[in-house]
Design a protein around this nucleic acid. Structure first.
Lengths: 245, 245
DNA sequence: AAGATTTACTACACGGTGTTCAGCATCGAT
DNA sequence: ATCGATGCTGAACACCGTGTAGTAAATCTT
């Protein structure tokens, strides 16, 4: 369509759009997701609330774009934390991923809620878009972690044959079958279980259900991740190392 | 103070208070937690919004009361589901609890969000009250489940000695030490991990992160719970039985 | 039974929100 | 130089939670 070089107008438009998102993130960072109001954003930019509607058709569209940005940046953090460990240490890669996602969630609790909770009243996530892409990427990353442990894990808990590829989202199945040709669908189910295991304690902690019951949820999270890694037939990292508190 | 028999006024007041909460629950059930507005409740009751302030000082107080009610009723559901299984089958009791909480969450997703998520923007839970009681009760229930499996579970993963009673909330510690005198603090940590494991997949499913990746999250949840029970050194229930879909 | 008091409720106001729309000014292209 | 698209304003609408003042009724006291 507009195949020629981006005009000055387009550039300004993109800049303003980015500024809107940046200010929204700032508001969210120090006021919670509910502090994201079009009027507050406009106030901060010296504009009127109605002006934002030239950039985002509705507030939900803004939130959707925000979720896409936050999710993508979080995933990049996770992937680089994972890649800091050698592929020869699949247990270490899992632990690195697990600690990185908890550290990210603790540092950006509002971002965590934006992705995994109710971002804002009445908001309903669309079925596709960058957020879905990021979710697929997160899932693929987890499947990669599981793939590094699959032979041993499969031997420990041989409960496949009940899963078939059509159980899963077609896009996810296609991704996995090209990236990991030898991986059975049961491994994808195992990856989802691993995801759930990382998510559970973290969600409870972020939403304040653990701190009222115990101090230092980091220890129990670390134990849980060690148990998870061991249950996959892998060697957990050195016990003395306690990366996060 | 008012130690005499409840007068007619007190009764009417209690009834109106209950009606407010009932309508709030109804609004939440078919409109999401954000549909709980004092004006909507008053409209439904033929009153003015301001009138509610005679019953609840602020909207957060209403939400707090609501959370207490919902949490308490959920806990009762869980406990009766658990008690339908004999004490001689600790694995079955854990599975009953796990399936009951998932079934409840799927039937009352808004209630789940009310308890475990951001009920409504800007709401901050108080540090005590019926919600805290229900949380303690849920935690105690889980500890009871773990207590039934502690000897075997402890033998499988002997990583205690790093937990001491002062790691936990004093009220929780006192409860446990009177109800289960022989249980070490490491068992409480294990119970929290079990809680996290039940919570993870459920939260992901309720917030729509699983359905986009796979149909039938019930299967993977069941597998996860089977693995959990096995990891506690218990016998899982008969594999043929698939209680929920 | 009559007066005093507590209580339940309405009416209204204030500041906040998302959203829409007519109008205006400015910029880009013709 | 003109014309049309674009970005923005300002006002409006319909909501929201929260207070305050006033009113009427129910209750308690004497």
């Amino acid at each position: 369509m507009t195949d020629h070089t981006p005009s000055r107008r387009d550039r300004l438009r993109a800049e303003t759009s980015a500024e809107i998102k940046a200010i929204a993130l700032k508001l969210m960072a120090d006021g919670g997701p509910d502090a994201i109001s079009l009027r507050a954003i406009a106030r901060e930019m010296g504009m009127t609330a109605g002006a934002i509607y030239s950039y985002f058709a509705t507030r939900d569209d803004l939130i959707t774009a925000l979720i896409g940005d936050v999710y993508t940046s979080a995933i990049q953090t996770l992937e680089s934390a994972r890649d800091a460990m050698p592929e020869s240490d699949p247990g270490g890669r899992i632990m690195a991923w697990a600690q990185a996602i908890r550290a990210w969630a603790l540092a950006n609790p509002e971002g965590f809620r934006l992705i995994y909770g109710d971002p804002v009243p009445g908001y309903h996530a669309p079925d596709d878009g960058p957020a879905k892409d990021a979710e697929l990427r997160a899932c693929t990353g987890l499947i990669g972690l599981v793939a590094g442990a699959w032979p041993a894990a499969h031997a420990l808990q041989p409960n496949d044959r009940q899963y078939i590829w059509t159980d899963f989202d077609p896009g996810l199945a296609a991704h996995v079958q090209t990236d990991f040709p030898d991986l059975p669908p049961a491994a994808v189910a195992l990856a989802l279980r691993v995801w759930g295991r990382m998510h559970g304690l973290m969600a409870l902690e972020i939403y304040g259900h653990l701190r009222t019951l115990m101090h230092d949820p980091a220890t129990v999270y670390r134990d849980e991740m060690r148990d998870l890694i061991a249950s996959l037939g892998l060697m957990p990292p050195a016990p003395s190392q306690t990366p996060f508190h």
